[in-house]
């Protein structure tokens, strides 16, 4: 699968752009946290597209964000 680029994204309708990024992000998140993959991906998709593209290219920064998302979720669940 070819890497997702900014120009590929720009050619897509706005509402499709997050879906396109999500389709790339989801399997990577699933590798780390299969149970929470949908939720974590949804949280990450609120980040700017330009930053998300960088994260797709950088496993280290992606993993850091995934861990951050898990920590936020756990803190949120602990409060309820």
């Amino acid at each position: 699968q070819e890497p997702l680029t900014a120009s590929m994204l720009a050619a897509a309708p706005l509402h499709e752009q997050k879906q396109m990024i999500g389709e790339r992000l989801y399997p990577l998140v699933h590798n780390v946290h299969s149970q929470l993959a949908g939720k974590i991906t949804g949280m990450l998709l609120e980040i700017d597209n330009s930053e998300l593209l960088l994260m797709l290219e950088s496993p280290e920064s992606l993993h850091a964000k995934i861990e951050e998302a898990v920590a936020v979720l756990q803190a949120h669940q602990a409060m309820e």
Binding site: Q19, G22, E23, L25, Y26, P27, H30, N31, G38, K39, T41, G42, M43, L44, L45, E46, I47, K65, E68, A69, A71, V72, L73, A75, H76, Q77
Partner: peptide
């Protein structure tokens, strides 16, 4: 530092994803 991630974000549903074997 407070995270900017939102725990109430909508869950993402992939169109096409198969479990890796």
């Amino acid at each position: 530092r407070k995270s900017t991630l939102n725990p109430n974000a909508k869950e993402f549903n992939p169109r096409s994803f198969s479990q890796p074997k």
